[in-house]
Design a protein around this nucleic acid. Structure first.
Length: 262
DNA sequence: ATGACTGGAGTTTCCAGA
């Protein structure tokens, strides 16, 4: 069977509810991970999504964060935040569940701006904690998909101007190396597995300066998969269509298509 | 033309996003 997994930073679900519903209707993903819902748990309009056949798992809070997993199939083995670490922010930034034998994680890595600040160090720490979390709870042989907004462009191909952006937030060597350390646990970047050398593939564009029209963006949203899942990957792409809709999120969905046994 | 974006909080202007 074809199993479609998506991840999308919606920049407020309240502002983007109609976009998300339209997207589910048009593309019918099996699972859609969301980031930046900006909702408290009790404020999530669960019934609206349930009536369209999606179970809602949401980890929000009073702040600007909030991650969710919308799934057509039942979920179990739910994990919220880093269970072994006292990190309240992670409770609104990490949510995982097992769906059809695949462990799906929706994550929103802190932005970390400005470079060099305490918040920047927290971003790096968050990426290290993410690796420790994987080490503790899973193995690289677990079918696992780590999806979300990593707020890091992995390499020079993933930003519109690597020379200009080098050292700036989301394209600093310390961020990239923290991301590599995470991936070295046993994860593959699904998009680069299918499109290893293709430039101009971005998932975020600044609202300002006509950045989307000029395709001046960065690839900050990723789907990282373990080997057993990578072997099942049929396709991976960034779906720019919702970025063209009226009042869009500044991020576009990333979609991975898998061929799973029936 | 010297600006140019968006959402949320909370109250009219600021902060954060990336």
């Amino acid at each position: 069977m074809v199993w479609i997994l998506g991840t999308w930073n919606v920049n407020s679900l309240k502002a983007r509810q109609e976009h998300v519903l339209r997207y589910l209707e048009k593309k019918s993903p099996s699972v859609l991970c969301l980031q930046e819902t900006k909702l408290r748990d009790e404020a999530f309009p669960k019934a609206v999504f349930e009536s369209r056949g999606y179970q809602v798992l949401h980890a929000g809070g009073p702040g600007r964060n909030g991650v969710a997993i919308l799934t057509r199939d039942p979920a179990k083995g739910i994990i919220r935040g880093f269970p072994e670490v006292d990190d309240p922010q992670a409770h609104e930034r990490l949510f995982g569940a097992e769906i059809r034998g695949i462990y799906v994680i929706s994550v929103y890595v802190p932005n970390g701006s400005p470079v060099g600040s305490d918040y920047f160090l927290y971003k790096l720490e968050f990426l290290y904690r993410l690796r420790e979390f994987l080490e503790r709870h899973f193995t690289p042989e677990t079918p696992l998909a780590l999806c979300g907004d990593f707020n890091v462009a992995p390499g020079g191909l993933d930003v519109y101007d690597p020379e200009l952006l080098e050292g700036q937030i989301c394209f600093h060597e310390r961020e990239r190396s923290a991301l590599r350390l995470l991936a070295d646990w046993g994860l593959v970047d699904a998009l680069r597995l299918k499109h290893p050398d293709k430039p101009g593939l971005f998932s975020w564009w600044d609202y300002q300066f006509g950045a989307f029209r000029a395709n001046r963006g960065m690839r900050l949203d990723h789907i990282w998969v373990t080997r057993p899942l990578a072997e099942r990957l049929a396709d991976c792409f960034i779906d720019c269509e919702p970025r063209t809709w009226s009042k869009p999120s500044d991020h576009a969905p990333v979609i991975a298509v898998f061929d799973l046994p029936d």
